[in-house]
Simulated scan of single mutants.
Amino acid sequence: MSETMALVTPPARKKRTSLEPGYRSRPAGRGGRTIGRAVLYIVLIVAAAAMLTPFFWMVMSSLKDANSVFSVPVRWIPEVFVWSNYVEIWESSDIGTWIKNTVIISLSVTALQVITGSFAAYGFARIRFPGRNMLFLLYVGTIAVPWQSYMIPQFIMLSNAGLANTLWSIMLLQAFGAFGVFLMKQFYETIPEELSEAARLDGLSEYGIWWRIMVPLSIPAVASLALLTFVNTWNDYLGPLIYLRDPSLWTMQLGLNNFVSSLYDTDYGVLFAGLVISVVPIAIIFMLGQRYFVEGIATSGMKG
């Protein structure tokens, strides 16, 4: 009987060790990963709420009357929504002219920086000449030089050229940017150089290679540069303050600043309505170009 039971009972399996072939470690528990992901989501939600709180307060303040904006305690939601603030900012100020000037300057500077930055970056990335790396380092090093250190000589130069108090002064000031060259060069270096070599063999000039090959392949970087340049130019205050003295040339930032007559006489509900209007174009551009912006920033530091 015992012999029969020995034949029927299967032998016990030997536990494998990590040194034996075919050994697989057990996957980590799903519970720990779920908790970690939940904590990450909570942190991200809290961070997003902290960043959006000032914007929410600005929007709600634009719908309050003048006495309720800085009330104590703070009222996040107005008791009565004053939609007439948006009508009053259009009627009591020259905000239409401010928006027009800001759009002209922002679009012009963005186009100039994209063209000049991408073209200069192509020279640094694909054209070999003596001292190329040293010249690039010196050019990029100008990012660390504050504009305030040379804005007076620059103002004298543009004034002598007769460009002060014109929109052309702001456009020429920001037509070139070292950051755009750096961003575009890093992206160009991710594009295989074999494409440029093949184009040269086919008789395409360097200008043609840049325009017909490099620029179409670098749309994410171009979109990132355009987005950053447009936002910086739209929000610029010091440049227009120095060069644009005529009220008909004021930008949004100058106009809204001069709208504040004094601390006690200003209707801050109307002022916040103007601030919301000034933020809307930037928010729309960010939403439309978010995908290209993330892709351009993520790939600009890669080489391959």
Rank of each mutant, 00 (worst) to 15 (best):
G304R: 01
G208V: 06
L204R: 00
F155D: 01
A199V: 09
G117P: 11
R126W: 10
P216F: 06
W83T: 09
R24V: 15
F230I: 12
Q154N: 14
L254M: 14
N232P: 04
W57G: 09
L7K: 14
A223N: 06
A111T: 09
G269S: 12
L135E: 01
S224M: 15
N257Y: 04
V276P: 05
T116A: 15
R200T: 13
A121D: 12
E206D: 05
A121W: 12
S261K: 06
M157S: 07
R126Q: 12
V87Q: 14
E193H: 11
V43N: 03
L217W: 04
S218D: 04
Y122W: 07
L195N: 05
G31Q: 11
I104H: 05
V181N: 05
G274D: 05
I105M: 07
V114P: 07
E193D: 12
E189T: 09
F179S: 06
G29I: 00
A178K: 08
Q253M: 15
D202Q: 03
V145R: 07
S248N: 06
G96W: 13
P153K: 08
A120L: 13
D94R: 04
M214H: 08
T142C: 04
L195T: 12
P10N: 02
T190F: 03
P216L: 06
A47D: 05
W210R: 00
E79Y: 11
S196C: 06
N235G: 02
L44V: 13
L204Y: 05
E206Q: 04
Y188R: 05
A175S: 13
S300D: 04
G131E: 08
N257S: 15
L158K: 02
S261H: 01
I297A: 14
G162M: 09
Y86E: 02
S118M: 05
F230V: 00
T229K: 00
A50S: 11
A50P: 00
E194P: 08
S106L: 02
S149T: 13
P146S: 00
W234Q: 09
W211M: 14
L263W: 00
Y292E: 00
I89N: 09
L167W: 02
S224N: 08
V103L: 13
A47R: 09
L137Y: 14
P153C: 08
M157H: 02
W250N: 07
T102D: 10
N232G: 14
R16I: 13
G96Y: 11
V145C: 00
S169G: 07
L241P: 15
L238T: 14
A283P: 00
A298H: 00
P27D: 10
I35C: 08
D94S: 15
F136I: 08
F70I: 03
T142S: 14
T251N: 04
A28W: 02
L63A: 08
